[in-house]
Design a protein around this nucleic acid. Sequence first.
DNA 1: TTCTATATTTTGTGATATCATTTTTAGGAA
DNA 2: TTCCTAAAAATGATATCACAAAATATAGAA
Lengths: 236, 236
Amino acid sequence: MFDLPEIPRHPSMTTQEYVYARLRNAIMVGVVQPESTLTIRGLADYLDLSPTPVREALRRLSSERAIELLGNRRISIPVMTAARFDEIVRLRMTLECHAARRALPFVSEVLIDQMRLIDDRMDDYVQSRDMNALTISNHEFHQVLYTANPHQTVMPVIESVWLQLGPFQRQMIRELEQFYLIDRHKEILAALRQRDGAALTEAIEADIEDGIGRVGHEVLRARQPGLQPLNGQLGM
Amino acid sequence: MFDLPEIPRHPSMTTQEYVYARLRNAIMVGVVQPESTLTIRGLADYLDLSPTPVREALRRLSSERAIELLGNRRISIPVMTAARFDEIVRLRMTLECHAARRALPFVSEVLIDQMRLIDDRMDDYVQSRDMNALTISNHEFHQVLYTANPHQTVMPVIESVWLQLGPFQRQMIRELEQFYLIDRHKEILAALRQRDGAALTEAIEADIEDGIGRVGHEVLRARQPGLQPLNGQLGM
DNA sequence: TTCTATATTTTGTGATATCATTTTTAGGAA
DNA sequence: TTCCTAAAAATGATATCACAAAATATAGAA
Protein backbone atom coordinates (compact mmCIF):
# COMPACT_ATOMS: atom_id res chain seq x y z
CA MET A 1 0.00 0.00 0.00
CA PHE A 2 1.10 3.62 0.28
CA ASP A 3 0.98 6.53 2.68
CA LEU A 4 -0.44 9.69 1.20
CA PRO A 5 1.55 12.60 2.62
CA GLU A 6 -0.67 14.75 4.77
CA ILE A 7 -1.42 18.24 3.57
CA PRO A 8 -3.02 21.19 5.35
CA ARG A 9 -6.77 21.35 4.92
CA HIS A 10 -8.19 24.84 4.80
CA PRO A 11 -11.62 25.11 6.40
CA SER A 12 -13.18 26.41 3.19
CA MET A 13 -12.10 23.30 1.28
CA THR A 14 -14.76 20.79 0.34
CA THR A 15 -14.01 17.15 0.99
CA GLN A 16 -13.65 16.54 -2.71
CA GLU A 17 -11.13 19.37 -3.06
CA TYR A 18 -9.16 18.00 -0.15
CA VAL A 19 -9.01 14.51 -1.62
CA TYR A 20 -8.03 15.98 -4.97
CA ALA A 21 -5.27 18.10 -3.46
CA ARG A 22 -3.92 15.26 -1.36
CA LEU A 23 -3.87 12.74 -4.18
CA ARG A 24 -2.44 15.28 -6.59
CA ASN A 25 0.37 16.07 -4.20
CA ALA A 26 1.06 12.39 -3.65
CA ILE A 27 1.28 11.74 -7.38
CA MET A 28 3.40 14.83 -7.97
CA VAL A 29 6.07 13.76 -5.47
CA GLY A 30 5.89 10.18 -6.70
CA VAL A 31 4.38 8.36 -3.72
CA VAL A 32 1.74 6.76 -5.91
CA GLN A 33 3.38 4.50 -8.45
CA PRO A 34 2.11 2.52 -11.46
CA GLU A 35 2.05 -0.70 -9.48
CA SER A 36 -0.04 0.81 -6.66
CA THR A 37 -3.52 -0.67 -6.55
CA LEU A 38 -6.02 2.15 -6.33
CA THR A 39 -9.69 1.67 -5.63
CA ILE A 40 -12.34 4.23 -4.88
CA ARG A 41 -13.55 2.40 -1.83
CA GLY A 42 -10.04 1.62 -0.67
CA LEU A 43 -9.12 5.28 -0.75
CA ALA A 44 -12.40 6.23 0.88
CA ASP A 45 -11.76 3.79 3.74
CA TYR A 46 -8.15 4.96 4.06
CA LEU A 47 -9.22 8.59 4.26
CA ASP A 48 -12.30 7.73 6.33
CA LEU A 49 -14.69 9.27 3.81
CA SER A 50 -17.54 8.19 1.63
CA PRO A 51 -16.76 7.08 -1.91
CA THR A 52 -18.55 10.03 -3.51
CA PRO A 53 -15.95 12.79 -3.09
CA VAL A 54 -13.16 10.31 -3.77
CA ARG A 55 -14.69 9.34 -7.07
CA GLU A 56 -15.03 12.98 -8.08
CA ALA A 57 -11.43 13.74 -7.18
CA LEU A 58 -10.26 10.72 -9.17
CA ARG A 59 -12.27 11.83 -12.18
CA ARG A 60 -10.63 15.23 -12.08
CA LEU A 61 -7.19 13.64 -11.90
CA SER A 62 -8.15 11.41 -14.77
CA SER A 63 -9.11 14.47 -16.84
CA GLU A 64 -5.65 15.83 -16.17
CA ARG A 65 -4.19 12.48 -17.20
CA ALA A 66 -2.50 11.98 -13.86
CA ILE A 67 -4.29 8.64 -13.54
CA GLU A 68 -6.26 6.35 -15.82
CA LEU A 69 -9.73 5.09 -14.98
CA LEU A 70 -9.75 1.81 -16.83
CA GLY A 71 -13.13 0.48 -17.83
CA ASN A 72 -12.59 -2.82 -16.06
CA ARG A 73 -12.72 -1.44 -12.56
CA ARG A 74 -9.03 -0.69 -12.32
CA ILE A 75 -7.41 2.64 -11.64
CA SER A 76 -3.79 3.05 -12.57
CA ILE A 77 -0.89 5.42 -12.91
CA PRO A 78 0.22 5.25 -16.54
CA VAL A 79 3.48 3.40 -17.10
CA MET A 80 6.20 5.53 -18.64
CA THR A 81 7.62 4.36 -21.93
CA ALA A 82 10.42 5.92 -23.94
CA ALA A 83 8.02 7.11 -26.62
CA ARG A 84 5.54 8.58 -24.15
CA PHE A 85 8.32 10.25 -22.22
CA ASP A 86 9.71 11.82 -25.34
CA GLU A 87 6.29 13.17 -26.26
CA ILE A 88 5.60 14.60 -22.81
CA VAL A 89 9.00 16.24 -22.47
CA ARG A 90 8.73 17.77 -25.93
CA LEU A 91 5.24 19.01 -25.15
CA ARG A 92 6.53 20.47 -21.93
CA MET A 93 9.22 22.36 -23.82
CA THR A 94 6.74 23.72 -26.32
CA LEU A 95 4.28 24.77 -23.63
CA GLU A 96 6.78 26.38 -21.30
CA CYS A 97 8.51 28.25 -24.10
CA HIS A 98 5.12 29.50 -25.25
CA ALA A 99 4.22 30.58 -21.74
CA ALA A 100 7.56 32.32 -21.27
CA ARG A 101 7.28 34.19 -24.55
CA ARG A 102 3.78 35.35 -23.66
CA ALA A 103 4.88 36.40 -20.19
CA LEU A 104 7.98 38.32 -21.24
CA PRO A 105 6.21 41.67 -21.87
CA PHE A 106 4.90 41.54 -18.30
CA VAL A 107 8.21 40.78 -16.61
CA SER A 108 9.36 43.38 -14.08
CA GLU A 109 12.45 43.79 -11.95
CA VAL A 110 10.41 42.84 -8.90
CA LEU A 111 9.39 39.60 -10.57
CA ILE A 112 12.96 38.75 -11.50
CA ASP A 113 14.00 39.35 -7.87
CA GLN A 114 11.21 37.07 -6.73
CA MET A 115 12.45 34.34 -9.05
CA ARG A 116 16.04 34.83 -7.90
CA LEU A 117 14.90 34.32 -4.31
CA ILE A 118 13.21 31.04 -5.18
CA ASP A 119 16.35 29.95 -7.02
CA ASP A 120 18.49 30.74 -3.96
CA ARG A 121 16.21 28.61 -1.83
CA MET A 122 16.64 25.77 -4.32
CA ASP A 123 20.39 25.84 -3.83
CA ASP A 124 19.77 25.13 -0.13
CA TYR A 125 17.53 22.19 -0.98
CA VAL A 126 20.25 20.79 -3.25
CA GLN A 127 22.64 20.94 -0.28
CA SER A 128 20.17 19.17 2.02
CA ARG A 129 19.15 16.70 -0.72
CA ASP A 130 15.46 17.46 -0.10
CA MET A 131 14.16 16.28 -3.46
CA ASN A 132 10.47 16.93 -2.77
CA ALA A 133 11.06 20.53 -1.74
CA LEU A 134 13.35 20.91 -4.74
CA THR A 135 10.67 19.75 -7.14
CA ILE A 136 8.07 22.04 -5.62
CA SER A 137 10.40 25.04 -5.71
CA ASN A 138 11.40 24.32 -9.27
CA HIS A 139 7.74 24.37 -10.29
CA GLU A 140 7.26 27.56 -8.33
CA PHE A 141 10.17 29.21 -10.12
CA HIS A 142 8.63 28.50 -13.50
CA GLN A 143 5.09 29.25 -12.39
CA VAL A 144 5.95 32.72 -11.13
CA LEU A 145 7.28 33.57 -14.57
CA TYR A 146 4.39 32.15 -16.58
CA THR A 147 1.67 33.71 -14.43
CA ALA A 148 3.23 37.15 -14.82
CA ASN A 149 0.94 37.35 -17.83
CA PRO A 150 -2.41 38.06 -16.17
CA HIS A 151 -4.36 36.67 -19.11
CA GLN A 152 -2.48 33.39 -19.48
CA THR A 153 -4.53 30.24 -19.95
CA VAL A 154 -1.69 27.77 -20.37
CA MET A 155 -0.74 27.25 -16.72
CA PRO A 156 -3.25 24.45 -16.03
CA VAL A 157 -1.96 22.57 -19.05
CA ILE A 158 1.63 22.89 -17.89
CA GLU A 159 0.64 21.68 -14.44
CA SER A 160 -1.00 18.66 -16.02
CA VAL A 161 2.29 17.87 -17.76
CA TRP A 162 4.20 18.23 -14.48
CA LEU A 163 1.72 15.87 -12.91
CA GLN A 164 2.26 13.29 -15.62
CA LEU A 165 6.00 13.43 -15.06
CA GLY A 166 5.73 13.19 -11.27
CA PRO A 167 5.69 9.41 -10.78
CA PHE A 168 8.52 8.91 -13.26
CA GLN A 169 10.70 11.57 -11.69
CA ARG A 170 10.62 9.61 -8.45
CA GLN A 171 11.62 6.46 -10.35
CA MET A 172 14.52 8.34 -11.91
CA ILE A 173 15.83 9.38 -8.52
CA ARG A 174 15.44 5.82 -7.24
CA GLU A 175 17.13 4.09 -10.14
CA LEU A 176 20.12 6.40 -10.34
CA GLU A 177 22.60 6.15 -7.49
CA GLN A 178 24.02 9.55 -8.15
CA PHE A 179 21.76 12.18 -9.52
CA TYR A 180 23.50 15.24 -10.87
CA LEU A 181 21.26 18.24 -10.78
CA ILE A 182 21.80 20.82 -13.42
CA ASP A 183 19.45 23.74 -13.64
CA ARG A 184 19.64 26.57 -16.10
CA HIS A 185 17.86 29.06 -13.88
CA LYS A 186 20.79 31.47 -13.95
CA GLU A 187 20.54 31.59 -17.75
CA ILE A 188 16.78 32.07 -17.53
CA LEU A 189 17.23 34.99 -15.17
CA ALA A 190 19.91 36.53 -17.38
CA ALA A 191 17.65 36.30 -20.44
CA LEU A 192 14.82 37.89 -18.48
CA ARG A 193 17.00 40.79 -17.36
CA GLN A 194 17.88 41.49 -20.97
CA ARG A 195 14.29 40.89 -22.13
CA ASP A 196 15.77 38.52 -24.70
CA GLY A 197 13.01 36.18 -25.92
CA ALA A 198 15.24 33.94 -28.00
CA ALA A 199 17.72 33.44 -25.17
CA LEU A 200 14.84 32.83 -22.79
CA THR A 201 13.28 29.98 -24.76
CA GLU A 202 16.71 28.51 -25.32
CA ALA A 203 17.41 28.57 -21.58
CA ILE A 204 14.04 27.01 -20.77
CA GLU A 205 14.54 24.22 -23.26
CA ALA A 206 17.98 23.58 -21.82
CA ASP A 207 16.59 23.64 -18.28
CA ILE A 208 13.98 21.01 -19.10
CA GLU A 209 16.46 18.90 -21.03
CA ASP A 210 19.03 18.98 -18.23
CA GLY A 211 16.46 18.72 -15.47
CA ILE A 212 14.59 15.65 -16.61
CA GLY A 213 15.01 15.00 -20.34
CA ARG A 214 18.51 13.62 -20.57
CA VAL A 215 18.39 11.56 -17.40
CA GLY A 216 14.91 10.27 -18.21
CA HIS A 217 16.01 8.95 -21.55
CA GLU A 218 19.00 7.35 -19.90
CA VAL A 219 16.86 5.55 -17.33
CA LEU A 220 14.43 4.36 -19.97
CA ARG A 221 17.22 3.13 -22.20
CA ALA A 222 18.71 1.24 -19.26
CA ARG A 223 15.39 -0.53 -18.73
CA GLN A 224 15.22 -1.84 -22.27
CA PRO A 225 18.86 -2.33 -23.25
CA GLY A 226 18.09 -3.41 -26.80
CA LEU A 227 16.12 -0.33 -27.74
CA GLN A 228 17.37 3.07 -28.74
CA PRO A 229 15.30 6.15 -27.95
CA LEU A 230 12.75 6.77 -30.66
CA ASN A 231 13.57 10.30 -31.66
CA GLY A 232 17.21 10.70 -30.87
CA GLN A 233 18.57 13.38 -28.63
CA LEU A 234 16.19 15.93 -27.24
CA GLY A 235 18.59 18.86 -27.27
CA MET A 236 18.31 21.13 -30.26
CA MET B 1 -33.34 27.57 -21.09
CA PHE B 2 -31.66 25.52 -23.76
CA ASP B 3 -32.09 22.30 -25.66
CA LEU B 4 -29.13 20.00 -25.50
CA PRO B 5 -28.80 18.32 -28.90
CA GLU B 6 -29.40 14.62 -28.58
CA ILE B 7 -26.51 12.30 -29.22
CA PRO B 8 -26.39 8.54 -29.69
CA ARG B 9 -25.86 6.62 -26.50
CA HIS B 10 -23.87 3.44 -26.84
CA PRO B 11 -25.00 0.67 -24.50
CA SER B 12 -21.57 0.41 -22.91
CA MET B 13 -21.65 4.09 -21.88
CA THR B 14 -22.13 4.87 -18.23
CA THR B 15 -24.65 7.56 -17.39
CA GLN B 16 -21.85 9.92 -16.40
CA GLU B 17 -20.12 9.39 -19.74
CA TYR B 18 -23.35 10.06 -21.57
CA VAL B 19 -23.98 13.32 -19.71
CA TYR B 20 -20.37 14.33 -20.30
CA ALA B 21 -20.57 13.61 -24.02
CA ARG B 22 -23.89 15.37 -24.42
CA LEU B 23 -22.87 18.50 -22.54
CA ARG B 24 -19.52 18.57 -24.27
CA ASN B 25 -21.17 18.40 -27.65
CA ALA B 26 -23.62 21.13 -26.69
CA ILE B 27 -20.83 23.43 -25.55
CA MET B 28 -18.71 22.65 -28.60
CA VAL B 29 -21.44 23.68 -31.05
CA GLY B 30 -22.34 26.68 -28.92
CA VAL B 31 -25.79 25.76 -27.61
CA VAL B 32 -24.76 26.51 -24.03
CA GLN B 33 -23.87 30.17 -23.68
CA PRO B 34 -22.36 32.27 -20.89
CA GLU B 35 -25.75 33.60 -19.87
CA SER B 36 -27.26 30.10 -19.57
CA THR B 37 -28.05 29.24 -15.96
CA LEU B 38 -26.67 25.84 -15.25
CA THR B 39 -27.44 23.88 -12.10
CA ILE B 40 -26.67 20.30 -11.27
CA ARG B 41 -30.22 19.56 -10.25
CA GLY B 42 -31.68 21.48 -13.16
CA LEU B 43 -29.66 19.41 -15.61
CA ALA B 44 -30.46 16.23 -13.71
CA ASP B 45 -34.19 16.97 -13.93
CA TYR B 46 -33.91 17.94 -17.60
CA LEU B 47 -32.12 14.69 -18.42
CA ASP B 48 -34.26 12.70 -15.98
CA LEU B 49 -31.27 11.49 -14.00
CA SER B 50 -29.95 11.75 -10.50
CA PRO B 51 -27.55 14.59 -9.66
CA THR B 52 -24.60 12.26 -9.08
CA PRO B 53 -23.54 11.50 -12.66
CA VAL B 54 -24.34 15.08 -13.69
CA ARG B 55 -22.02 16.52 -11.10
CA GLU B 56 -19.24 14.19 -12.16
CA ALA B 57 -19.65 15.15 -15.80
CA LEU B 58 -19.60 18.83 -14.85
CA ARG B 59 -16.44 18.36 -12.88
CA ARG B 60 -14.72 16.77 -15.84
CA LEU B 61 -15.80 19.66 -18.07
CA SER B 62 -14.54 22.05 -15.44
CA SER B 63 -11.14 20.34 -15.47
CA GLU B 64 -11.06 20.91 -19.23
CA ARG B 65 -12.01 24.55 -18.63
CA ALA B 66 -15.15 24.26 -20.72
CA ILE B 67 -17.17 25.50 -17.74
CA GLU B 68 -16.42 27.10 -14.40
CA LEU B 69 -17.70 25.73 -11.12
CA LEU B 70 -17.89 28.90 -9.06
CA GLY B 71 -17.71 28.45 -5.33
CA ASN B 72 -20.93 30.28 -4.72
CA ARG B 73 -23.19 27.67 -6.22
CA ARG B 74 -23.05 28.99 -9.75
CA ILE B 75 -21.90 27.17 -12.84
CA SER B 76 -20.99 29.25 -15.82
CA ILE B 77 -19.50 29.30 -19.28
CA PRO B 78 -16.56 31.71 -19.17
CA VAL B 79 -17.18 35.00 -20.92
CA MET B 80 -14.83 35.70 -23.80
CA THR B 81 -12.71 38.81 -23.56
CA ALA B 82 -10.26 40.15 -26.11
CA ALA B 83 -7.29 39.26 -23.92
CA ARG B 84 -8.53 35.76 -23.17
CA PHE B 85 -9.35 35.17 -26.82
CA ASP B 86 -5.90 36.27 -27.88
CA GLU B 87 -4.32 33.90 -25.37
CA ILE B 88 -6.45 30.94 -26.37
CA VAL B 89 -5.94 31.42 -30.10
CA ARG B 90 -2.20 31.81 -29.66
CA LEU B 91 -2.10 28.71 -27.50
CA ARG B 92 -4.09 26.86 -30.13
CA MET B 93 -1.55 27.85 -32.77
CA THR B 94 1.36 26.72 -30.64
CA LEU B 95 -0.29 23.41 -29.76
CA GLU B 96 -1.46 22.52 -33.24
CA CYS B 97 1.87 23.44 -34.82
CA HIS B 98 3.58 21.28 -32.23
CA ALA B 99 1.22 18.40 -32.91
CA ALA B 100 1.67 18.74 -36.66
CA ARG B 101 5.44 18.80 -36.43
CA ARG B 102 5.40 15.70 -34.23
CA ALA B 103 2.99 13.93 -36.58
CA LEU B 104 4.81 14.71 -39.81
CA PRO B 105 7.18 11.70 -39.70
CA PHE B 106 4.14 9.41 -39.49
CA VAL B 107 2.21 10.96 -42.38
CA SER B 108 1.42 8.56 -45.22
CA GLU B 109 -0.25 8.93 -48.60
CA VAL B 110 -3.28 7.09 -47.24
CA LEU B 111 -3.56 9.62 -44.44
CA ILE B 112 -3.34 12.57 -46.81
CA ASP B 113 -6.11 11.01 -48.92
CA GLN B 114 -8.22 10.60 -45.81
CA MET B 115 -7.74 14.26 -44.97
CA ARG B 116 -8.55 15.31 -48.53
CA LEU B 117 -11.82 13.39 -48.28
CA ILE B 118 -12.79 15.21 -45.11
CA ASP B 119 -11.90 18.51 -46.77
CA ASP B 120 -14.12 17.68 -49.75
CA ARG B 121 -17.01 16.98 -47.40
CA MET B 122 -16.43 20.35 -45.78
CA ASP B 123 -16.91 22.08 -49.11
CA ASP B 124 -20.39 20.54 -49.24
CA TYR B 125 -21.19 21.81 -45.75
CA VAL B 126 -20.09 25.30 -46.79
CA GLN B 127 -22.59 25.09 -49.66
CA SER B 128 -25.41 23.95 -47.37
CA ARG B 129 -24.37 26.41 -44.64
CA ASP B 130 -24.37 23.61 -42.04
CA MET B 131 -22.14 25.30 -39.51
CA ASN B 132 -22.26 22.57 -36.87
CA ALA B 133 -21.24 19.87 -39.32
CA LEU B 134 -18.56 22.21 -40.64
CA THR B 135 -17.08 22.72 -37.19
CA ILE B 136 -17.06 19.00 -36.47
CA SER B 137 -15.44 18.17 -39.82
CA ASN B 138 -12.85 20.88 -39.36
CA HIS B 139 -11.86 19.37 -36.04
CA GLU B 140 -11.81 15.94 -37.63
CA PHE B 141 -9.49 17.15 -40.38
CA HIS B 142 -6.97 18.40 -37.85
CA GLN B 143 -7.41 15.47 -35.51
CA VAL B 144 -6.65 12.89 -38.17
CA LEU B 145 -3.32 14.60 -38.78
CA TYR B 146 -2.30 14.98 -35.14
CA THR B 147 -3.23 11.44 -34.15
CA ALA B 148 -1.10 10.02 -36.97
CA ASN B 149 1.62 10.06 -34.32
CA PRO B 150 0.70 6.98 -32.28
CA HIS B 151 2.48 8.27 -29.19
CA GLN B 152 0.99 11.78 -29.14
CA THR B 153 -0.24 13.10 -25.84
CA VAL B 154 -1.27 16.56 -26.97
CA MET B 155 -4.65 15.76 -28.51
CA PRO B 156 -6.67 16.08 -25.28
CA VAL B 157 -5.14 19.49 -24.68
CA ILE B 158 -6.06 20.65 -28.18
CA GLU B 159 -9.59 19.39 -27.70
CA SER B 160 -9.82 21.37 -24.50
CA VAL B 161 -8.87 24.49 -26.45
CA TRP B 162 -11.48 23.75 -29.10
CA LEU B 163 -14.01 23.34 -26.32
CA GLN B 164 -13.12 26.71 -24.87
CA LEU B 165 -13.60 28.36 -28.24
CA GLY B 166 -16.95 26.63 -28.94
CA PRO B 167 -19.35 29.05 -27.28
CA PHE B 168 -17.62 32.08 -28.76
CA GLN B 169 -17.58 30.63 -32.25
CA ARG B 170 -21.36 30.46 -32.15
CA GLN B 171 -21.48 34.08 -31.03
CA MET B 172 -19.24 35.07 -33.93
CA ILE B 173 -21.58 33.46 -36.42
CA ARG B 174 -24.56 35.15 -34.80
CA GLU B 175 -23.11 38.62 -34.63
CA LEU B 176 -21.77 38.69 -38.15
CA GLU B 177 -24.41 38.84 -40.90
CA GLN B 178 -22.06 37.52 -43.52
CA PHE B 179 -19.43 35.11 -42.46
CA TYR B 180 -16.71 34.51 -44.97
CA LEU B 181 -15.13 31.15 -44.49
CA ILE B 182 -11.52 30.81 -45.43
CA ASP B 183 -9.70 27.61 -44.74
CA ARG B 184 -6.11 26.86 -45.56
CA HIS B 185 -6.62 23.14 -45.80
CA LYS B 186 -5.35 23.02 -49.36
CA GLU B 187 -2.08 24.57 -48.21
CA ILE B 188 -1.90 22.12 -45.31
CA LEU B 189 -2.35 19.20 -47.69
CA ALA B 190 0.26 20.57 -50.08
CA ALA B 191 2.77 20.95 -47.27
CA LEU B 192 2.06 17.40 -46.12
CA ARG B 193 2.60 16.00 -49.61
CA GLN B 194 5.99 17.65 -49.71
CA ARG B 195 6.75 16.67 -46.11
CA ASP B 196 7.63 20.33 -45.55
CA GLY B 197 7.50 21.08 -41.84
CA ALA B 198 7.99 24.82 -42.10
CA ALA B 199 5.26 25.20 -44.72
CA LEU B 200 3.00 22.98 -42.64
CA THR B 201 3.20 25.06 -39.48
CA GLU B 202 2.79 28.21 -41.55
CA ALA B 203 -0.36 26.81 -43.16
CA ILE B 204 -1.78 25.72 -39.81
CA GLU B 205 -1.18 29.13 -38.26
CA ALA B 206 -2.83 30.77 -41.24
CA ASP B 207 -5.74 28.32 -41.05
CA ILE B 208 -6.39 29.16 -37.41
CA GLU B 209 -5.94 32.89 -38.00
CA ASP B 210 -8.34 32.90 -40.96
CA GLY B 211 -10.75 30.42 -39.42
CA ILE B 212 -11.35 32.11 -36.09
CA GLY B 213 -8.59 34.53 -35.15
CA ARG B 214 -9.21 37.50 -37.42
CA VAL B 215 -13.01 37.42 -37.20
CA GLY B 216 -12.90 36.83 -33.46
CA HIS B 217 -10.82 39.89 -32.86
CA GLU B 218 -13.16 41.87 -35.10
CA VAL B 219 -16.22 40.80 -33.13
CA LEU B 220 -14.56 41.54 -29.82
CA ARG B 221 -13.40 44.96 -31.00
CA ALA B 222 -16.93 45.76 -32.15
CA ARG B 223 -18.23 44.94 -28.68
CA GLN B 224 -15.92 47.39 -26.93
CA PRO B 225 -15.39 50.14 -29.48
CA GLY B 226 -13.00 52.13 -27.30
CA LEU B 227 -10.53 49.31 -26.81
CA GLN B 228 -7.87 48.07 -29.15
CA PRO B 229 -6.85 44.43 -29.06
CA LEU B 230 -4.15 43.90 -26.49
CA ASN B 231 -1.44 42.31 -28.52
CA GLY B 232 -2.01 43.66 -31.99
CA GLN B 233 -2.55 41.48 -35.02
CA LEU B 234 -2.30 37.77 -34.67
CA GLY B 235 -0.70 37.09 -38.05
CA MET B 236 3.05 36.83 -38.00
C1' DT C 1 0.20 -30.18 -8.77
C1' DT C 2 -2.57 -27.69 -12.16
C1' DC C 3 -6.68 -26.37 -14.30
C1' DT C 4 -11.50 -25.16 -14.31
C1' DA C 5 -16.03 -24.08 -12.62
C1' DT C 6 -18.59 -22.08 -9.02
C1' DA C 7 -19.30 -19.31 -4.96
C1' DT C 8 -17.97 -15.27 -2.46
C1' DT C 9 -16.30 -10.80 -2.09
C1' DT C 10 -15.13 -6.53 -3.87
C1' DT C 11 -15.93 -2.80 -6.77
C1' DG C 12 -17.95 1.12 -9.59
C1' DT C 13 -22.21 3.27 -10.59
C1' DG C 14 -26.19 5.69 -9.79
C1' DA C 15 -30.32 6.95 -6.87
C1' DT C 16 -31.87 8.85 -2.64
C1' DA C 17 -31.78 11.32 1.82
C1' DT C 18 -29.92 14.83 4.73
C1' DC C 19 -27.71 19.01 5.92
C1' DA C 20 -25.67 23.52 5.68
C1' DT C 21 -25.56 27.48 2.50
C1' DT C 22 -27.03 30.30 -0.75
C1' DT C 23 -30.37 32.33 -3.60
C1' DT C 24 -34.79 33.81 -4.37
C1' DT C 25 -39.11 35.50 -3.00
C1' DA C 26 -42.34 38.35 -0.08
C1' DG C 27 -43.63 41.80 2.61
C1' DG C 28 -43.27 45.79 4.54
C1' DA C 29 -40.77 50.53 5.53
C1' DA C 30 -38.89 54.67 3.71
C1' DT D 1 -41.05 53.10 -6.57
C1' DT D 2 -36.90 51.54 -4.14
C1' DC D 3 -34.64 49.46 -0.47
C1' DC D 4 -34.13 46.43 3.25
C1' DT D 5 -35.23 42.15 5.95
C1' DA D 6 -37.03 37.66 6.96
C1' DA D 7 -39.18 33.54 5.36
C1' DA D 8 -39.18 30.09 1.81
C1' DA D 9 -37.17 27.53 -1.77
C1' DA D 10 -33.36 25.80 -4.26
C1' DT D 11 -28.79 24.19 -4.41
C1' DG D 12 -24.27 21.77 -3.76
C1' DA D 13 -21.90 18.46 -0.94
C1' DT D 14 -21.69 14.25 1.26
C1' DA D 15 -23.15 9.81 3.15
C1' DT D 16 -25.68 5.77 2.50
C1' DC D 17 -28.05 2.22 -0.02
C1' DA D 18 -29.02 -0.97 -3.87
C1' DC D 19 -27.55 -3.24 -7.85
C1' DA D 20 -24.94 -5.26 -11.49
C1' DA D 21 -20.54 -6.52 -12.98
C1' DA D 22 -15.97 -7.78 -12.17
C1' DA D 23 -12.31 -9.78 -9.45
C1' DT D 24 -10.95 -13.06 -6.23
C1' DA D 25 -11.21 -17.15 -3.55
C1' DT D 26 -12.60 -21.85 -3.13
C1' DA D 27 -13.27 -26.51 -4.18
C1' DG D 28 -13.30 -30.30 -6.97
C1' DA D 29 -11.52 -32.84 -11.14
C1' DA D 30 -7.82 -34.19 -14.02
